[in-house]
Amino acid sequence: MSTMAFLKRSPWILHYDASSCNGCDIEVLACLTPLYDVERFGIINTGNPKHADILMITGGINELNRAVVRNLYEQMPEPKVVVAIGICAATGGIFRECYNIAGGVDKVIPVDVYVPGCAARPEMIIDGVVAALSILEEKRAKMTGAAQIKDDARHAAGEST
């Protein structure tokens, strides 16, 4: 396995609006547009979990989207990170006390980076992605390490038989 980390240079994101008020939501989209242009960092908004490395979630978890969020997360190939954008995604935010809000995204899937703000600004989202990149890289290293160990184990088993 190569040790070159392309992952950091080409993070593709999947954005899902859990139960956001659209505030953070549109700021995520604004990141793609000329003034912020996150494609500078190789970021593409894929819209397809199978292609994505970073799952960006805005808004908190409610009854119906719980399964959707988990489904999307599971469909992403490893290594992957989750960035919770905005305070609703972190804790449920101002809607924390609503009867249909179960809380932040971490109630359902592990969250790696929390971006505060109501609404989170494009700059904060960029910062969040940057923070996510190093985590992504760590996970990749761990993954290849694990694969290496597995391989070694297989070899060892092969030799013994």
Binding site: Y16, N48, P49, K50, A67, V68, V69, R70, N71, L72, E74, Q75, P77
Partner: peptide
């Protein structure tokens, strides 16, 4: 993995 179904399980 399961097939992509728009996030719908």
């Amino acid at each position: 993995l399961p097939a992509y179904m728009g996030g719908r399980p």
